[in-house]
Design a protein around this nucleic acid. Structure first.
Lengths: 147, 147
DNA sequence: GCTTTGGGTTCTGAAAAGGAACTCACTTGG
DNA sequence: CCAAGTGAGTTCCTTTTCAGAACCCAAAGC
């Protein structure tokens, strides 16, 4: 199998990664959540080459994660914004941040963390089953192929 | 910036991705959660080349996500198992699955979903702040560079 | 002996990423 | 009016990484 055949797999992990599993892609999404919307800003923040950034933005747009909107005519300029599909990636980003802050220490510099916007107290992300309220872990759950 | 400079970034997203953001890596982790432990099994299931698989397993081992354990001597054979750090990736996997099942439809084949091991009812993953019990979304939270 | 099994390594050509310069359509400052 | 600047890319070339296949090795089974 090749990387590009992943998108029509029965496994949601494979399908998800076919969209966001690319190098740099989640970092572009992160910047969008932080309010960065312009090409040059992203390019500078990420240190990515312009070529690769243009490619990632194009892919994210065709996959419906971002949309490209004109914010001025003459000269025509666009900005990139998350669609609902893109905003739905927030839990993935939060769990990734939580994992990295717990298990991939930042050397030298202090790490960025998430705090409640109201109280400024660090959040402690936890996954629960909304139906039952129970915590989700790999012992309480199994994977099935449903019709 | 290059991809390989990501691991000592102040941003946990970048540091996390420096470990698991590589092509194929999360699929290897997925297989580990499914109980696949042998090289050849993984190679066949993933359709990845043996070369790349060996490389990813080596990296995951040095990063402390997997450990390599001998399950027999003569001939010496190893299997790969998740460490605690690896198991801590489960929430990332679950949120990714949930996103893909909701936003990246499976064409043709039915998708794999997660159900409660007790009741066989599909789970509805939700992220809450364990401290307050409130749901986490990108409006209730902000990122800060702490001490 | 010869083949199979598990777990890799080596080799070659193709694809993707990195680096830097160039383009195009304006706008602004002198 | 001309030069320089800005935003958003594109082009060209080099270096890495990936895909595909073949090869290796130690032991076991026939």
């Amino acid at each position: 199998m090749k990387w590009n055949d992943l998108h029509n797999s029965a496994c949601p992990v494979a399908r998800g990664l076919s969209v966001i599993g690319d190098r740099w892609t989640m970092l572009v999404v992160r910047d969008c959540f932080l309010g960065v919307r312009r090409f040059d800003q992203m390019q500078e923040r990420l240190g990515i080459t312009r070529h690769v950034l243009a490619d990632r933005l194009r892919k994210l747009e065709t996959d419906g994660v971002l949309r490209r909107e004109a914010y001025q005519e003459r000269p025509l300029r666009h900005e990139y914004r998350l669609t609902d599909k893109g905003k739905a990636l927030y839990p993935v980003l939060v769990t990734l941040i939580d994992w990295a802050n717990g298990h991939v220490p930042s050397v030298g510099e202090p790490s960025v963390t998430l705090v409640s916007r109201e109280t400024d107290i660090p959040i402690e992300p936890q996954l629960i089953d909304a139906r039952t309220g129970n915590a989700i872990d790999h012992r309480s759950v199994r994977a099935v192929t449903s019709e």
